Structures are given as C-alpha cells and as structure tokens.
Amino acid sequence: MIKVTIDYDSPERIHSFTLSGHADFAKKGSDIVCAGVSAVSFGAVNSIISLTGVPLEIEQGGEGGYLRCVIPDETSQDTQEKVQLLLDGMLISLQTIEREYGKYIKIILNK
C-alpha cells in the first residue's frame, strides 16, 4: 500500500508531504495506481519548482518507494499562495485515486 502523509503547519498550509510504499495493484510496470500517484506527486513538485522558483527540500529513493518534500517557510505571501494552490491540486488528485483504489493507497492528513 502507498501511504501518503500530508503535514500542515496551520489548518490551511501544507508544510510537507511524504509518500512511501508500493501500491501492489499489479506487477511492476503495469501498476496504474503507482503510476498515477507518481505522476501526480512528481508533477506537483516539478510545477512548484518551475512556476514559483521555490527551492524545495526533496528526499527520494529506496526500494520502498519514497518521496518527501518540505516547503520552506521563507517565501513571500504571494508565492506561498501559489505553492499551496499547487499542493491542494495534488491532494485533490491523490484523494480521487484513493476513492477509486482505497485498498492500495491511504492518505493521512496531519493538521
């Protein structure tokens, strides 16, 4: 199962997110749950970097399928709003996957 943990530093501000594990929906290379989660999460990270220029703290790798992303506190209000909008879009997409494939992905919101 893929575990997605979203950590907030206020009720509306995502400070970091972590993905770990494998969906095990299908064999490697055919797992649409894993592919969807990967596309959504890496798409959000790449969008934040490209569209806002915010230097994210990123850790990834390992056999267990792992991605951690921390958003720095030192950004302007305008930039922070853009980052949060992109993260909210990521979360909505992941929740859509969870609704359909809840046996293979679990999202935990730490508010």
Rank of each mutant, 00 (worst) to 15 (best):
5 T>P: 10
6 I>F: 11
6 I>R: 09
7 D>L: 10
8 Y>D: 00
9 D>E: 10
14 I>R: 01
18 T>E: 13
19 L>T: 03
20 S>Y: 11
21 G>T: 05
22 H>Q: 03
24 D>T: 06
25 F>N: 01
26 A>P: 02
26 A>D: 14
27 K>G: 11
27 K>W: 11
31 D>K: 07
31 D>A: 03
32 I>M: 04
34 C>I: 10
37 V>F: 07
37 V>A: 09
41 S>D: 03
41 S>E: 03
45 V>I: 11
45 V>W: 00
46 N>L: 14
50 S>Y: 12
51 L>R: 11
51 L>V: 09
52 T>F: 01
55 P>W: 08
56 L>N: 03
58 I>G: 01
59 E>N: 10
60 Q>A: 10
60 Q>Y: 04
61 G>P: 10
62 G>Y: 02
66 Y>E: 00
69 C>R: 02
71 I>Q: 03
75 T>M: 15
76 S>I: 01
80 Q>D: 13
81 E>R: 15
81 E>Y: 15
84 Q>M: 10
85 L>C: 11
85 L>D: 02
88 D>K: 14
88 D>W: 06
89 G>A: 09
91 L>E: 14
94 L>H: 06
96 T>W: 08
96 T>I: 07
98 E>L: 06
100 E>P: 06
100 E>T: 13
101 Y>S: 08
104 Y>I: 03
107 I>K: 01
107 I>V: 15
109 L>M: 15
109 L>E: 15
109 L>T: 14
